[in-house]
Computed example of a mutant assay.
Amino acid sequence: MAFTLTSPVFSNGDVMPQAQVYSGMGQQGGNLSPPLKWEGAPEGTKSFVLTLYDPDAPTGSGWWHWVVVNLPASTTSLPEGAGSGRGGLPAGALEVRTDFGTPGYGGAAPPPGRVHRYVFTITALDVPKLEVSVDSSPALVGFMVNHHRLASAQITVLYGSGTKSP
């Protein structure tokens, strides 16, 4: 079985629903992390890391919207709002600082102009825990993930000028 990441509220290539768009910075969204489900993790998976990244942000290095580490290997889904303070993150999971400057989910918030890609990635790791804190940078998490990655699965959704959210 292939390692896959899915959501009941969008599919790969869809426009991000308004419920998942940021609330602020000129955006009028719900800022709720989406419900996500994954299956087919490789043998030897000891934990997962979940990220949301915008490679099109005009920063020269993209924009990290959500970083969740230390998801137990037994975890196969997250409910809507789990990264938005509504509960649903499993015991031991940790949200680290995003490019908004705080931990937690931050939805799509592109500046006026072109459509941006928002890439949700679940990565299976060969270690039960990454030794990071809520103040760790997404770059540090990425460095550690790349050393312990077994497999990754992604969904990319779109948002920006000219898109219409469902």
Rank of each mutant, 00 (worst) to 15 (best):
A2W: 06
T4M: 06
T4E: 13
V9T: 14
N12Q: 11
V15Y: 03
V15C: 10
P17E: 12
V21S: 07
V21P: 03
Y22F: 09
S23V: 00
G26V: 03
Q27P: 04
G30I: 03
L32Y: 05
S33Y: 00
P34N: 14
P35C: 02
E39V: 02
E43L: 04
G44L: 07
S47T: 07
S47H: 13
T51L: 11
L52V: 00
D54V: 00
P55D: 10
P55F: 01
D56P: 00
G60A: 09
S61K: 15
G62P: 01
G62A: 05
G62K: 06
A73H: 04
L78M: 08
G81Y: 02
A82S: 14
G85R: 11
G85W: 09
L89G: 04
L94V: 00
R97Y: 03
T98F: 05
D99T: 09
G104E: 05
G104W: 00
Y105N: 11
A108H: 01
A108K: 06
A109V: 01
F120D: 08
T121N: 10
D126C: 04
D126W: 08
P128V: 08
K129W: 07
V132S: 09
V134G: 14
V134E: 15
D135W: 13
S137H: 03
P138E: 08
A139E: 14
L140H: 12
F143R: 15
M144F: 10
M144G: 03
V145M: 12
N146F: 05
H147T: 04
R149G: 00
Q154I: 03
T156W: 01
G160K: 15
G160R: 14
T163I: 01
S165V: 09
S165F: 04
S165E: 14
P166R: 14
